[in-house]
Structures are given as structure tokens and as C-alpha cells.
Amino acid sequence: MTKKRLFLLVFFAFVIVGFVISLQLPGPEPFGVDGPRKSIVLKDSSGNAIKDPLTGVDFIISESVIMQIPVMVFLIALFIFLGHNLKVRPESKRQAAAEWIVTFFRNTVEETMGPKYTRGMTPYIASLFLFSMCSSLQGVLGLRSPNSDLFVVLTWGLTTFIMVQANKFRTGGVGGFLKSWVQPVPVMLPFNLIGDPAAAVSITLRQFGNIMGGCVITGLIYFALANARLSVGVPAVLSLYFDFFAAVVQAYIFIMLTMCYIGGADCTPEES
């Protein structure tokens, strides 16, 4: 009981101190959302920006690219830590956690795509999920999430599109690939031609819109709280939904739809 009271006391002390401090700070700047900043512009030896020979646009390493590096480093470090020194009979909690993660993804892939794909697809699906989730969760830290850049997510959407086409080739050969465009009747050809790229665009926009929308809404809420002189000490509960829930659910949905599209593009000829 006393511990609880002490905790509440410290919490309210924080809120009051934060409120007093925020009264002293200068007022906030007007709200705005800009795209990812241009972090590094590549230059040649004479100091001119290097241009893409095809489009004439500057080569730029944007903020989104740089913000992906901490995610990669974090995931690599985490899985080297989880995966080293494994034993046949698990002794440590570390190995139990590693096995739980692997089993979870293996089961997900097996349930959605069937046992044929389990071995091949699990690594890709697992890394896609974890990378997408950790990138989105960067928004919690106040950083700009790479997923709120359309082109980061578009890359994953295009990867899915290419894998769908590759799976048609792999399972059906050239004949099966060509035949898949005129399924179930030849009249459907234009719809199939539109449908496949549209699926890639659709999963891209879903992820981008959710993360970007969450980014804008939490930004507006923080801006409003700062305007009301409550910028310090007021817990933003909505961040729980827009940052945590949306990040995990969108990553899950992205891998689910990717698996459905790739598994659905199976053109194995039917044995009669």
C-alpha cells in the first residue's frame, strides 16, 4: 500500500513539475508535417550533386534510409544474441524465446501457405514482419518511422509482386504463367493485368496510410497538448493505439496478405 502511494506521489510530482517547467518554455511552433528530410546529397569531386543519368534527379540518401540502419543493427544483434550457443535440450530462457519466435512464424506460414512453402518462405516472412514492426515502433521513440515514407513500403510491395510472378513461373513454367493471365476465362485478361499490380499498390498504401496517419494524428495531439501548456507529464494514451497497436497489426497484415498472394499464385498443373 505504501509502495503504491509512493509511486502515485512521485507520478504527480512529475506531472506538477513538468507543468511548471512547460509554463516557462516558449510557445510551440505551428504544426506541420514534412516528408523525410534529405539527409545526404551525394557529390562528386568538384562538389556538384551526382545526377541519375536516366531521370536527372539528384542521388539522395534520405532520412528513411538512414533510420532503417538502427533497426537492422538492433535485429541483427538481437538474433545473434538469441541464436548463439543453442543446445538440444533447452536450458535457458533465451533459447526458449528463440524457439518460440521460430515456431510461431513456421506455424503461421504452414497454416496460410501449406507445408510445401514452410521451409522456403519462413525466413523471408519472419524478417519482413520483424523489420516492419520494429520500423513502425520507432515512432514511439519520437523518431520518424521509415514506414511513413511511401517508397520504403513500396519496395516491399514490389517485392511481393515480383515474388508472386516468380512463383507462377516456378510452379507452372512458362505455359502456366501465361495461362494464369487468362484464368478463369480469356475475357478476364484486362482485369488480371490490372489486378496483380493493384494488389501490390493496395498493400503498400495500407501500411503507408496507417503509419503515416498515426504519425499525423499523434503529432496533432502532441501539438495540442503543447498548446495547452501540457507538453510535459501528460501521458498520451492514444500513442498506445496509433503507435503500438497499429505497428504490430499492420506488420501482421502485411505478411498475411503477402503469404496469401504468393500462395494463391500457385500454378501447379492439376493431375487428371
Binding site: 493496395s202 498504401l205 495500407r206 496507417n210 497489426v249 499492420q250 496478405l257
Partner: peptide, 14 residues
């Protein structure tokens, strides 16, 4: 349900 929700959400996201 969550997957269905996400797909139903598409038009809103657009």
C-alpha cells in the same frame, strides 16, 4: 477478424 478489418479498411486508407 483482424485481417478482414484490415481489408475492409482499404478504402478508408485510400
Amino acid at each position: 477478424m483482424i485481417i478482414g478489418d484490415a481489408i475492409a479498411e482499404s478504402t478508408g486508407i485510400y
